[in-house]
Amino acid sequence: MADQSAAVEAVHPPDALLRVVNPALKFALKSPLGGPLSDFMLVSFTGRKSGKRYATPVSAHQLDGSLYVVLEAQWKYNFKGGAPVQVSHRGKTRTMRGELITDPAAVVDIVERLALSYGPKKAQRQMGMSFSGGRLPTRAEWEDAVGRLKIAAIKLS
């Protein structure tokens, strides 16, 4: 159950919806159809421990000319120490390197700047989060959320 006093909470679409939408997104993002879907990208990587291949549609975040994934999901740890990743974005697929960023101050800076650039409504949708009162969180609220939800960023370069 969500903490009612928390200013930021993670929000995920229902599993049933993801089972329908994710395969279509995976197909579209790897094709020329992916061009207009610039808010999303497909990250394909190999699990560090399992050796299994994964392809995950995620929101594409652009900041200072770099692409980022912002997430609290456990698969982020596949990028600890850096890892190769195939990124399908805007209809093109390229090999990149994903670097996990877990330093709280750095993550707070990234999420705060992204949210500010989007505005409250789009930020909630793009970042998979809900903000108390529909307003942008304060820096202190981001600091709480990053620590409590274990939010991290993956920088793709």
Results as ranks from 00 to 15, higher is better:
Leu17Thr: 11
Leu116Tyr: 13
Ile110Gly: 01
Gly98Lys: 00
Tyr68Ser: 03
Ser132Ile: 09
Gln126Asp: 15
Thr95Met: 15
Glu143His: 07
Ala55Gln: 12
Ile101Ala: 08
Asp109Cys: 04
Leu63Asp: 11
Gly35Lys: 12
Gly47Glu: 14
Ala140Tyr: 10
Val69Arg: 01
Gly134Tyr: 05
Val111Asp: 01
Gly119Asp: 15
Ile101Asp: 08
Asp39Cys: 07
Lys150Asp: 15
Thr93Trp: 11
Val146Lys: 00
Pro32Tyr: 04
Ala24Asn: 07
Met129Thr: 14
Gln124Val: 10
Phe40Asp: 01
Ala106Ile: 08
Ala83Gly: 06
Gly47Arg: 13
Leu114Trp: 00
Ala123Glu: 12
Leu100Thr: 11
Leu114His: 00
Met41Trp: 02
Thr138Asn: 14
Lys52Trp: 03
Ser38Gly: 10
Gly51Met: 13
Gly34Met: 04
Leu67Lys: 06
Leu29Arg: 10
Asp109Val: 03
Ser31Ala: 15
Thr95Tyr: 10
Ala55Pro: 05
Leu37Tyr: 08
Val58Asn: 03
Ala83Asp: 07
Leu18Glu: 12
Gln4Cys: 03
Lys76Asp: 01
Lys92Gly: 04
Ser117Arg: 15
His89Thr: 09
Met1Leu: 13
Gly147Tyr: 03
Leu71Glu: 05
Glu143Gly: 10
Pro137Cys: 03
Val11Ala: 05
Gln62Cys: 07
Gln126His: 15
Val108Tyr: 04
Asp144Ala: 15
Leu25His: 01
Arg97Phe: 08
Gln74Ile: 01
Ile154Phe: 04
Gly81Lys: 03
Pro32Gln: 06
Met41Glu: 12
Ala83Lys: 02
Thr93Ala: 10
Gly147Asp: 07
Lys155Ser: 07
Gln74Asn: 08
Gln74Val: 01
Gly65Ala: 07
Gln4Lys: 13
Lys26Met: 11
Ser130Gln: 15
Gly81Arg: 03
Met41Asn: 04
Val108Pro: 02
Lys121Pro: 01
Ser5Gln: 12
Lys122Pro: 00
Ser130His: 09
Asp109Pro: 02
Pro120Gln: 07
Phe79Glu: 03
Asp39Gly: 10
Asn78Ser: 06
Ser157Lys: 09
Asp15Asn: 06
Lys52His: 10
Leu17Ser: 09
Ala152Cys: 15
Leu29Gly: 02
Asp15His: 03
Ser50Ile: 11
Lys121Ile: 11
Tyr68Trp: 05
Leu156Pro: 02
Ala145Glu: 01
Arg125Cys: 05
Val70Gln: 00
Arg113Glu: 14
Asn22Thr: 10
Pro137Gly: 02
Ile154Trp: 02
Gly47Tyr: 13
Ile110Asn: 01
Leu71Gln: 08
Gln74Asp: 09
Thr56Asp: 04
Pro120Gly: 08
Val11Phe: 02
Pro14Gly: 00
Leu149Tyr: 06
Val146Ile: 06
Arg97Pro: 01
Val87Lys: 00
Gln62Tyr: 08
Lys49Thr: 11
His12Arg: 14
Asp3Val: 07
Val107Tyr: 00
Gln86Val: 14
Phe27Met: 06
Arg19Gly: 01
Val108Asn: 04
Gly98Glu: 11
Leu149Phe: 05
Leu116Glu: 15
Gly147Met: 02
Gly119Thr: 14
Thr93Met: 12
His12Ala: 12
Lys150Trp: 07
Pro32Asn: 05
Gly34Val: 02
Leu67Gln: 07
Arg97Leu: 13
Thr102Arg: 14
Ala140Phe: 08
Arg97Gly: 11
Ile151Thr: 14
Asp39Tyr: 05
Gln86Gly: 08
